[in-house]
Write a protein that binds this DNA or RNA. Structure first.
Lengths: 316, 316
DNA sequence: CGTTTCTCATGCCCTTGGCTTATGCTGGGT
DNA sequence: ACCCAGCATAAGCCAAGGGCATGAGAAACG
């Protein structure tokens, strides 16, 4: 003996109506409930009436010059307490997120940032938004962008040589700093020079870094009319530097990687290129109408980092 | 450092939007969510967009040709699960109430109904709506109406002599049966008669029942031009009957009260009045636009009770 | 590598829900 | 018997919100 099921749960009852029921149960009066909710008394009156016809059940009865809830009204009001509380909890959670009082900043960055920029972010995060946790992962730019695309991180700190980065649709690149690339050679090869022209080392053996860096090296060499003989590929900057110091090969190393290594081996020298070559460091994030709190926070933190200590100059 | 608090929780987020969030988390697609909710895809799209601007937080991001929820979106979706469940539970509870599969029928009736009509209601309730419990209280009509007015019961079964019942505003009286009033006298006083005229007993001592019945007796006697000498007032029908049987006094007793007593004492006789006097039995309930499930149920049960066994005739 | 297909975004129009103000009505309090 | 508090009703207005048609981007397919 099933009664006519309420057709569409969507329109059956509304959170506003739940709030009204709750207010009615609390105040016991249409007028006061209306005042509580910032509505006019007729608004509440009509609203309840409509719910009553929708549910085909009376919710309030007049009692004296006031009203009281019927059994059905009390049932709804009971549930309304939970509903209202849950919605408010949700709003509070969102508010906390937006106010950077909760949540996690999921960040991916490239290796040489791990020892420089990322620790700086951590420090700032601890003071600026101590209740936001940092979930950090390290990856080279292409993989980092993939993680961003797949929603595994909120933003990706990448580097890029000549605007060659392939960004996924719907993402935004925010340039942060520009750094110069140096040539690291053994002391004797430097011969007291304070800068280097790439072509001078055309005949040397080369050590290449990650894939992007290798690509940059190849492109740079091609511009100078030679094809470098790459004898080693490694992400390991200290190893690269040690090899260069040993004189077995030369390497093209961005400033940040040098900074990450803290000190050069005694017998190695970093020579700025002449003409200089630049690497851009920036943040990639998904572009949404309202910037997500995490991205906003990340950008704010980054904007407060002074890149000078790693010889980074602010980007345009 | 509190961010701009969301102004009005009322308009901040809506149960429909919670449903949408939930559907999005479940299906992972605007199109499927829309289908689930019986909406068009643009409707869902726009709605989410509006919530995003209201909360100033992105909730979804495009991923490939689909979408995914952001952190904020997931937070809301989590809470949405609870909200949706609670609202559906509320609707189900209302539906059960309306479908008479839950709740309680709070009834008050007058004493002589307690042994007659009310047990019949109980039996019918057990077969018709076994999941509805009966909360029964006994009270004379005036008190019963007070309880109804105060919302302590859903409906009140009362009797009434001459439409003299004072109903509270907003209540409805539904007449059910009409019964005759008899004079109970000792066998020797009856002298073999099969009916009685009130005036014949003007000089007797009288026993009056409850206040309403006493009022009726006074009114009836006044019509016959005498004022009865009332020596006893009691609600206790067997006692009244026993006293009448003993010959100490006569009593005016409605049929239902006689039926409630099951049998008359051997030496007492019940004489129908000539001309007959009637008492009406009916149900009082609060009048609401949609009749409450409890009242509806009660009326349905009462309509299925055959009053003949207590010499009740159906009311107009 | 183009083409198809799936999915989401946008613009337009229309409906109606829902709020406000003004006013009537009823029950209590004095 | 009066007045006041509280709810109901009426009229009117605005915009939220939905559908349809269409555009645009990304994946899948040949």
């Amino acid at each position: 003996m099933s009664t006519t099921r309420t057709a569409d749960p969507l329109g059956a009852i509304d959170s506003t109506e739940m709030r009204i029921l709750h207010a009615l149960a609390t105040t016991g009066s249409l007028t006061q409930a209306a005042a509580t909710l910032g509505l006019s008394q007729p608004a509440v009156s009509q609203r309840i009436k409509r719910v009553e016809t929708r549910l085909a059940v009376p919710l309030i009865e007049r009692q004296g010059r006031g009203i009281r809830l019927t059994t059905a009204g009390n049932i709804l009001a009971d549930h309304a307490r939970t509903v209202v509380a849950e919605i408010d909890a949700a709003l509070a959670a969102i508010d906390d997120l937006r106010g950077e009082r909760a949540g996690a900043l999921r960040l991916v960055a490239f290796p040489s940032a791990s020892a420089t920029i990322v620790p700086a972010i951590m420090r700032l995060l601890a003071s600026e938004a101590p209740e936001v946790s940092l979930q950090y992962r390290e990856a080279e730019p292409p993989a980092a962008i993939g993680m961003l695309r797949d929603g595994e991180v909120d933003c990706a700190l990448i580097f890029d040589y000549e605007g060659a980065a392939e960004l996924p649709a719907g993402s935004t690149f925010t340039p942060l700093w520009r750094e110069t690339v140096s040539l690291v050679v053994s002391e004797d090869r430097a011969a007291g020079l304070t800068s280097a022209q790439l072509g001078d080392y055309a005949g040397e053996h080369w050590i290449a870094g990650c894939e992007k860096c290798r690509g940059h090296l190849m492109a740079a060499a091609a511009e100078c009319g030679f094809e470098p003989e790459i004898i080693q590929e490694t992400d390991n900057v200290p190893a690269m530097l040690a090899m260069a110091a040993a004189g077995g090969a030369v390497s093209m190393v961005p400033g940040l990687a040098l900074a990450a290594a803290r000190t050069l081996p005694d017998d190695a020298v970093a020579l700025p290129l002449e003409p200089p070559r630049y690497r851009t460091i920036g943040l990639v994030s998904m572009s949404t109408a309202n910037e997500s709190p995490q991205v906003r926070l990340c950008k704010r933190l980054l904007s407060r980092i002074d890149g000078n200590r790693w010889n980074l100059e602010a980007a345009a």
